[in-house]
């Protein structure tokens, strides 16, 4: 059966103006991302990975080119429809967790389930990342890894089609990073959510179905893993 692409990017260009300097973050990227696959984006800083992720997630718009989510042209979306798109279809994970400090773990998840269409319950979402027992803790009472797992629960509670992770383990030590990666892997495996992970750590690529390499605003290489390994097997 042919895999169905959920994201398709064609000749994607993104130019930033930083003061008077023009920075070309993407120089014409062609890429398809498929349903329920686990993709890792690798590449040096400034190679365009985050820019691509932000565009796919509707946080940013390209300067030129085409990008579609299923049948929807993201280029044609307004601020409001982009917000709805994020609300219903994508989940984000950032290096900095970004939990609301005044809400407990469960309440942080509830923040999303309150506005999503067919969400899980906050407890269900927390159970996926094995955080349900700490649901009443505030962010300040959780370790970094635990906070990141709550962030994952919050991202997946809406049952998104894609989970976009920008350096999810960047701020964590190896052991904790491994736990977070297991949680992300579980989401991909159990919920069939397409997962895109940006990382500097090439070892993580071994967990993925495909590893896409970035350099200078372009896709330089795509590798397909025929034998995915589990996070426990990763050598850091």
């Amino acid at each position: 059966m042919e895999k169905k692409a959920i994201f398709a990017a064609r000749q994607l260009v993104k130019t930033y103006h930083v003061g008077e300097v023009e920075v070309q973050a993407l120089r014409g990227v062609d890429l398809d991302l498929y349903e329920s696959e686990f993709v890792v984006l690798l590449g040096p800083s400034g190679s365009g990975k985050s820019t691509l992720l932000n565009i796919l997630g509707g946080l940013d718009q390209p300067t030129s080119g085409d990008v579609t989510y299923r049948d929807h042209d993201l280029m044609k979306m307004t601020e409001t429809t982009l917000t709805d798109f994020r609300r219903d279809h994508v989940g984000f994970i950032f290096q900095a967790y970004n939990l609301i400090p005044s809400l407990t773990a469960a309440e942080n998840v509830q923040l999303v389930t309150d506005i999503a269409d067919h969400p899980m319950t906050p407890i269900e979402a927390l159970r996926v990342v094995d955080m349900h027992e700490r649901k009443d803790h505030f962010p300040s009472q959780l370790s970094g890894g635990e906070q990141q797992r709550v962030a994952i629960a919050r991202a997946i509670a809406k049952r998104p089609d894609a989970l976009l992770c920008d350096e999810p383990t960047g701020a964590l030590d190896n052991a904790t990073g491994r736990i977070v990666l297991k949680a992300i892997e579980a989401v991909n495996r159990e919920l069939k959510t397409t997962v895109v992970v940006i990382t500097h750590n090439a070892a993580i690529g071994k967990m993925a179905d495909r590893v896409i390499y970035f350099a200078n605003g372009l896709v330089s290489k795509i590798e397909t893993n025929h034998h995915k390994i589990s996070p426990d097997e990763i050598v850091w």
Partner: peptide, 16 residues
Amino acid sequence: TWELATLRIVGFHHLE
């Protein structure tokens, strides 16, 4: 600011 940005990212509209 970042809390509000987070809310925007998870799908809250400007007015929300």
